[in-house]
Design a protein around this nucleic acid. Structure first.
Length: 203
DNA sequence: AAACGCAACAACCGCAATTTG
DNA sequence: GCAAATTGCGGTTGTTGCGTT
C-alpha cells in the first residue's frame, strides 16, 4: 500500500533498475522451484526478493505457470487437443485462459502460441474444421437434454468433464463424432476407446 | 560457409479485474 | 466507498533455430 502523498497512478510492476530480463537460466529456475516448493506463492511481488532472484514478480509468476509447475505438460499437442482448442475457440473467442482450463497441463500462453503459429493457418487454409474432408459429424444438443455416455474407463473423469463443458458454455453443446477413426469417438474433452450411447434428441 | 527468411516459442508489456486496507 | 496494490489475461515482441539460397 502506498502512503498518502505518494505518486498517484499506476506504478510499474517492479523497479526496472537492476532486475534481470530475458531468458531464464537453469540456476534461476532452480531457485524459483525451490522457493515455491518450500513456501508456496502467496505474494508474487515479494517472492523474487525472498527467493534471491533479480527478477520481477510478474516474470517469476509467468515462468512458474508456463514452465516450472510440476503439472505442466510438455511436448506437441495431440490431434484431440487441437480439435478441442478449435471447438472452444469458436465458442469463446480469444479467451486463452478459459480454453486452457479445459486442457489439463496446457497453459494459456502455449495455446495462444499454437493458435497463432499452427491452427490459424490451418483454418485459413480450410484444413482444420472442414467436416466434409475429415468425415466428422457434428450434432447440437440443447443444454437441458440429458446425455449419458456408457462404457468408458473412467466414469468420474468423464462425468466431471461433461459437466464443466455444460456449465462453461451455458448453452449449446457441440458434440463431435469421428466414427471411422480407431473405432473411437471424440467430444472435445474426452477420448473414448469403447462403445458410446447417446440419450436425448439430436438436432 | 555465409546470408537470409521464416516459424516457433519464451518472455515482456499494458490494461482490466480483483483484493486489500 | 475509495484508492492503491496485486494478480491475471491477452496482445505483442524478441530471440533462437532451422531450412533454403
Amino acid at each position: 500500500m502506498a502512503r498518502k502523498g505518494e505518486r498517484r497512478g499506476r506504478q510499474p510492476c517492479c523497479e526496472k533498475e537492476g532486475l534481470k530480463r530475458g531468458a531464464w537460466t537453469a540456476a534461476e529456475d532452480k531457485k524459483l522451484v525451490a522457493y515455491i516448493t518450500m513456501h508456496g506463492h502467496t505474494n508474487w511481488r515479494n517472492l523474487p526478493k525472498q527467493a534471491g532472484l533479480l527478477r520481477c514478480g510478474k516474470s517469476c509468476r509467468l515462468r512458474w505457470i508456463n514452465y516450472l509447475r510440476p503439472d505442466v505438460k510438455r511436448g506437441n499437442f495431440t490431434k484431440e487437443e487441437e480439435d478441442t482448442i478449435i471447438s472452444l475457440h469458436s465458442e469463446l473467442g480469444n479467451k486463452w485462459s478459459k480454453i486452457a482450463s479445459y486442457l489439463p497441463g496446457r497453459t494459456d500462453n502455449e495455446i495462444k502460441n499454437l493458435w497463432h503459429t499452427h491452427i490459424k493457418k490451418k483454418i485459413a487454409q480450410g484444413e482444420a474444421s472442414s467436416s466434409s474432408s475429415s468425415k466428422q459429424e457434428s450434432y447440437e444438443i440443447k443444454p437441458n437434454q440429458s446425455i449419458i455416455l456408457h462404457e468408458y474407463n473412467s466414469a468420474e473423469e468423464l462425468s466431471s468433464s461433461q459437466m464443466l463443458w455444460r456449465e462453461e458454455l451455458n448453452g449449446v453443446m457441440d458434440f463431435m463424432m469421428m466414427p471411422e477413426e480407431d473405432e473411437g469417438y471424440y467430444n472435445g474433452l474426452v477420448y473414448l476407446e469403447s462403445e458410446i450411447d447417446l440419450w436425448g434428441q439430436m438436432n
